[in-house]
Structure formats: structure tokens, C-alpha cells
């Protein structure tokens, strides 16, 4: 008995030793900046005024700032629309890529290209598409003898425009992760299900989806946190307009950072962090990962 407990101790110690460098990186590069941001958010921190401690005043101001609420609503709506969209499309693409056909390898590589393109570049691409005077979209409308549309000119148009641009770029990411999950499902299960008389939809809902669940949750988690932080595509495509209609919380915070109001911007960022953190916890609970490990 004594020997056993000594043995476990040593293993644990070794484990901690191996993890230590990673933990240090995590603490130094992630926890410290987060703590710093939280600290800054309770100060009035502008370069032309003395730095004073104001407690929750920044947060109170944020809650009274209509621009903040607008950004928050936009961000949440953006997540609510784009994440399911990308996941469903990604799943569709993954299902297709999971079949065996000639040229599959090349198609899999090609599918990743939009994701590999930097967000700023893909923003420019869509800018060219949506451009009123010489954009591809209006060119197509002209071919159909229709009036050119100011795609980014209305709040809803701009919203859908950025959702489309973002989905184009990030759907491949979802597709590849889901594809990995799909290929982990043994082919034998499907053969068995066919013999058991299950049709295509039945096989999908009773076998594929349940077995895909952990991977699906991971995909949703990644995409949700990324969508919460959406910035690049907005900065390039709409600049947050028209009339602030497509300003995300990130962009909102950025404007204040770049104007020098670090305290206010930090508070907005902390709120964003809090939301992302909460959603992550929800996802982890849904995924039941700890149960799987046990």
C-alpha cells in the first residue's frame, strides 16, 4: 500500500513537470494580459487626464451607452446567425467529402483555401463584390436587367453582407473538423444499419449525428468564440457602418483604444471576455467531455 501511493506521487510530479512550461506560457501570455485588462477597466485611463481609480464607473457608463448596446446586440445576433449557418454548411460539405470519388483529395485541399486567406484579404475580395459601381454582384444584377443595389447600404443588407463574407471564410474550418469526426465513424456501423433497414435520413440522425456530437460541440465552441470576436471583416468591409450598424464589441473597443481611452475600451473588452467565457462553459457542459474521459 505504501509503495503504491509513493509511485503515484512520482507520476503526478512528473506530469506537473511536463506541463509546467505550458502552464507558464498560458499564465504569462494569457492570464496576465487578461488580468491587466481587468485592472485597466476600473481606472479612468486617458493620456490627457490623471489616471484615477473609478471602480465600476466605466461599466456603468457602458451600460448607459446606446452605442455599446448596439454593438452588443449586433455581436450576439451575428453569432446567432453565422455560427449555425457555418456549421450546417460545413456539415454538408463534410458529408460530401466523406464519400469516395475521383479527385477527392484535391477537392479537400481546395475547400480549405478560403480559410487560409487572411481575413483582411477576404474582406477586400467581398468589398469588390459588393462595390456599388463596379462590383461583381451589381454586374450580375445588370446582366439580369435589374437596378444595381447598394448592398452594404442598409443595416440588414450590411449585416447579411458581413455574415456571407464571414461564412465563406470560416465554413471550411467547420467542414474540415467535422470531416475528421465523420471519418472516425467506422464504415461497418453504416453497413450494419443498412442491413437493419435504416434509410439515409435514419442513418444520419440515429448514427452520424449522435456519434458526431463531441466534434460538433468542439466546432461550435471554436466558431462561437471566434464569431464573438469578429473584427477584421467588419473593419475592412463596412468600417462598422452604415451608421454604426455593423459595429461589433471588438470594433467598439478598438475605436476607444485607438482614441486613447484605455479604461473604457478595457471595460468593453472585459465584458466581451466574460460572454465568451460563459458560453465556453455552457458548451463544455453540453459536450459532456468529462463524462467521456471517465
Amino acid at each position: 500500500m505504501k509503495k503504491t501511493s509513493f509511485h503515484i506521487d512520482r507520476e503526478t510530479r512528473a506530469g506537473i513537470g511536463f506541463l509546467a512550461p505550458l502552464l507558464l506560457c498560458l499564465i504569462g501570455l494569457i492570464l496576465v494580459p487578461v488580468a491587466g485588462t481587468i485592472a485597466t477597466s476600473v481606472f479612468r485611463d486617458v493620456p490627457y487626464l490623471p489616471k484615477t481609480f473609478i471602480g465600476a464607473a466605466n461599466y456603468v457608463s457602458l451600460l448607459n451607452d446606446p452605442a455599446f448596446w448596439r454593438s452588443l446586440m449586433f455581436t450576439l445576433l451575428f453569432v446567432l446567425v453565422s455560427v449555425p449557418l457555418e456549421t450546417v454548411f460545413g456539415l454538408g460539405i463534410a458529408l460530401v467529402l466523406n464519400q469516395v470519388f475521383a479527385g477527392r483529395g484535391m477537392l479537400r485541399a481546395a475547400v480549405l483555401i478560403p480559410w487560409a486567406v487572411p481575413a483582411a484579404v477576404s474582406g477586400r475580395i467581398f468589398e469588390l463584390i459588393y462595390n456599388y459601381s463596379y462590383g461583381a454582384a451589381n454586374r450580375m444584377l445588370a446582366l439580369l436587367h435589374m437596378e444595381p443595389a447598394n448592398w452594404l447600404g442598409s443595416a440588414s443588407g450590411a449585416f447579411l453582407g458581413v455574415v456571407a463574407a464571414d461564412a465563406w471564410k470560416t465554413t471550411p474550418f467547420a467542414a474540415i473538423i467535422l470531416l475528421a469526426g465523420l471519418s472516425a465513424i467506422p464504415e461497418d456501423l453504416y453497413r450494419q444499419a443498412r442491413v437493419d433497414r435504416a434509410g439515409t435520413f435514419q442513418r444520419f440522425f440515429r448514427i452520424t449525428l449522435p456519434l458526431l456530437r463531441p466534434v460538433l460541440i468542439v466546432t461550435l465552441l471554436f466558431r462561437t468564440v471566434d464569431a464573438l470576436r469578429v473584427f477584421d471583416i467588419l473593419y475592412v468591409l463596412t468600417g462598422g457602418g452604415p451608421g454604426g450598424a455593423t459595429t461589433s464589441l471588438s470594433l467598439f473597443g478598438y475605436r476607444y483604444f485607438s482614441a486613447g481611452d484605455f479604461g473604457y475600451a478595457s471595460a468593453a473588452t472585459v465584458i466581451l471576455f466574460g460572454i465568451a467565457f460563459l458560453l465556453s462553459l455552457v458548451y463544455l457542459k453540453l459536450g459532456g467531455f468529462s463524462r467521456e474521459i471517465r
Binding site: P242, G243, G244, R255, Y256, A259
Partner: peptide
């Protein structure tokens, strides 16, 4: 010194009025 923030606010509202989302007067009041 806080002109950039003022400008951000004004830009947003004025652009909103140009987009036809709100009235000119309302934009300026906000």
C-alpha cells in the same frame, strides 16, 4: 483632446441619417 471620440459619435449618427435609418434632427440630438 477627446476629439476622436466626439468624431466617432458624430460620424455614426450622421452616417445613420444618410442611410435613412433616422431623421436628421434625431441624429443630431442623439
Amino acid at each position: 483632446p477627446y476629439y476622436p471620440q466626439i468624431s466617432n459619435i458624430a460620424q455614426r449618427q450622421i452616417n445613420s441619417a444618410l442611410a435613412g435609418h433616422i431623421d436628421a434632427g434625431e441624429a443630431l440630438i442623439r
